[in-house]
Simulated scan of single mutants.
Amino acid sequence: MNSKVKSKKMIVSIFILFIVALFVAFFVFNSNTLASDEVFNDIDFKSEHVNVDGYKLDHETEELFVKLKLSEEDKTAILEAFKNSKFEISSSSDSYADGNYFINISLNKLYELELNPTQKKLIFVYEDDNDSDHIYYKFSNDSGLFELLETITKESLNQ
């Protein structure tokens, strides 16, 4: 009887291990999360020619577009946040909503972006920057990008 009990325990253990392996494989291979290099077409974050600038659409200020005054540290932090962000494909976004950011990133090529901080959406101004046909992306992890942009906007308004 002892060997029958051991045999049943072993079969149950193998079955449980099999179920756990299927569960893990399902989530690993069916993950909807995309890394920045999967979203941006041909992006090279190690490019020698780096420039970042941007504006915020803001009807509450005297200026319709608030120019972001970016230090070199700000530019580096923005690039790092984009590099470390994770995305999911989204169906649509409210374009040109009040409070949206318009960010231009020049690396190996120019990426013109619209960011909706309310919906946490990324919109490529030119579709060939991400090989899409009006695909919008939602940040599943923005790596502090929107908080950083809000801080920079407040500093830009106070200068």
Score class of each variant (00 low, 15 high):
Val12Lys: 07
Leu34His: 03
Val12Gly: 09
Ser36Thr: 10
Lys121Tyr: 02
Lys46Arg: 12
Leu57Cys: 07
Asn84Glu: 02
Val20Glu: 03
Ile14Met: 03
His49Pro: 06
Leu148Asp: 06
Asn51Tyr: 03
Val24Phe: 00
Lys109Ile: 01
Lys109Phe: 03
Ile103Trp: 00
Leu22Pro: 06
Asn100Gly: 13
Ile43Asp: 06
Ser132Trp: 02
Ile16Tyr: 02
Asn108Lys: 07
Thr76Glu: 15
Ala97Asp: 08
Asp74Trp: 02
Asp129Phe: 03
Glu60Pro: 10
Ser47Trp: 04
Val5Ala: 08
Leu107Arg: 02
Glu63Asn: 12
Pro117Met: 00
Ala97Trp: 02
Asp94Cys: 11
Leu22Ala: 13
Glu73Met: 15
Val39Glu: 05
Val20His: 05
Lys6Met: 07
Asn141Arg: 01
His134Arg: 09
Glu62Gly: 15
Phe65Thr: 11
Ile152Cys: 13
His59Asp: 13
Ser140Arg: 08
Val66Met: 03
Glu38Tyr: 01
Ile78Phe: 01
Leu70Pro: 08
Val5Ile: 09
Ile89Phe: 04
Thr76Ser: 15
Thr153Phe: 05
Thr76Gly: 14
Asp42Tyr: 06
Asn30Met: 06
Phe23His: 04
Ile135Arg: 13
Asp74Glu: 02
Ser93Arg: 05
Asn141Gln: 07
Val39Asp: 09
Ile123Thr: 10
Glu147Leu: 14
